[in-house]
Write a protein that binds this DNA or RNA. Structure first.
Lengths: 208, 208
DNA sequence: CAACTAACATACAGTCTGCATGTAGGTGAA
DNA sequence: TTCACCTACATGCAGACTGTATGTTAGTTG
């Protein structure tokens, strides 16, 4: 009778414990920083012991990586949802940009993904995560725009990385209290600048 | 007789000890990371005890901040030396850009200034340091170019931050083994894109 | 030269990480 | 069904690190 809560398969136990740990760690890593969050605090919040943590994750960094991966996926999801394939290249790029900036306003996300992430996991590992999630959208958008002849042809990988870095910096500045409009304007000017052939219509409505 | 080494004024002692600590910390912070470098290791390399460290610096972070400040100043110095006021706005911008990318090739500098710095000190503190040193050059270059009508007028603060972020990302990628030429080309295209009125002459000299 | 202060060295308390060992519960084969 | 095995944890421990408090020596000042 008391089976319902007591009787759980090993796979269910693993899944639940891992999810609890990731959720607790996510909350703490976004409220404080990676360095300021200790594993005793995490496991207390998750309702398990440190033994469970070190059973499921190689070390504190591995748990952090799992949190980052999940959070990056969530951001990418918000972007994809905001820029459906029905939009043309330029509009999709703009919609995706705004969705990214909006998604990064979630408390603590900028520190998790843009400060602690690169420092703790390294730029290489962080690039791999980005390329699986957030930057993938941007890259596809840029490639589409270049294919549609609305953008100068440049190496996609490199352009994605640099524009992505600019977006990241804008997100950080906006969270720090800077004007979102100003940063958005500069970002758009940077992208606009890569569209050579287009007449320089100042602020034409975006119907296409 | 043995005064020469034994007899030192307090100010000399302080200066020497602080310099030794900063130098030792700089070496270790650039070889390993901030987190992987312990204060026992630093003071051993500097030839003092941890008591001296905590006498001169509030904590490990404060020592790190001093190292970052010094390193940022060194980078800014290399940039300024490469872009004298005799150059016109555009040439100075290009020379400064190349000098920055060259300066960031010093081993460990990208991690110190671009990964650990922001994560440990926070973006706000890091911005303050950048604005005193590296970014100042870039900002002045951009403002000069905008004044000379060779660049679209945009908010200087924001444009500097975003272009600076792109430069930073390029430096990281280049250190990771990416093609310096490709990243340089994309950076130049981004800057070039901000020069609207100019005919799209590929590489016209720019006497004014 | 005497009082005072700055520049350290030493010792200690608290906390953290990672691992090694122990145990209870789930699983698969006979 | 049962028994051997394995997975999922809990507990305890070793090493290391940070920051501070206290003690000592060397410089400074009236």
């Amino acid at each position: 009778m008391q089976q319902d809560s007591a009787r759980r398969s090993n796979r269910d136990r693993t899944e639940a414990t891992r999810a609890d740990l990731i959720a607790a760690a996510r909350k703490l890593f976004t409220e404080k920083s990676y360095a300021e969050t200790g594993t005793p605090e995490i496991v207390a919040a998750a309702g398990v012991t440190r033994g469970a943590l070190y059973h499921h994750f190689a070390d504190k960094q591995a748990l952090f990586a799992a949190v980052v991966e999940q959070e990056a996926a969530a951001v990418a999801d918000e972007i994809e949802r905001a820029s459906p394939p029905s939009l043309d290249a330029r509009d999709a790029l703009i919609a995706g940009s705004d969705a990214y900036l909006a998604a990064m306003r979630a408390p603590g996300r900028t520190r998790l993904l843009l400060l602690d992430g690169p420092a703790v996991l390294g730029r290489a590992a962080m690039d791999a995560i980005d390329n699986r999630h957030g930057n993938r959208s941007l890259r596809e958008g840029l490639v589409a725009a270049m294919r549609a002849q609305t953008m100068t042809r440049l190496p996609a990988e490199e352009l994605t990385a640099l524009l992505g870095a600019a977006f990241d910096r804008a997100a950080l500045a906006i969270e720090a209290g800077a004007s979102a409009e100003d940063y958005r304007a500069v970002l758009m000017a940077l992208i606009e600048g890569l569209s050579p052939a287009l007449p320089r219509a100042p602020r034409q409505a975006r119907t296409r």
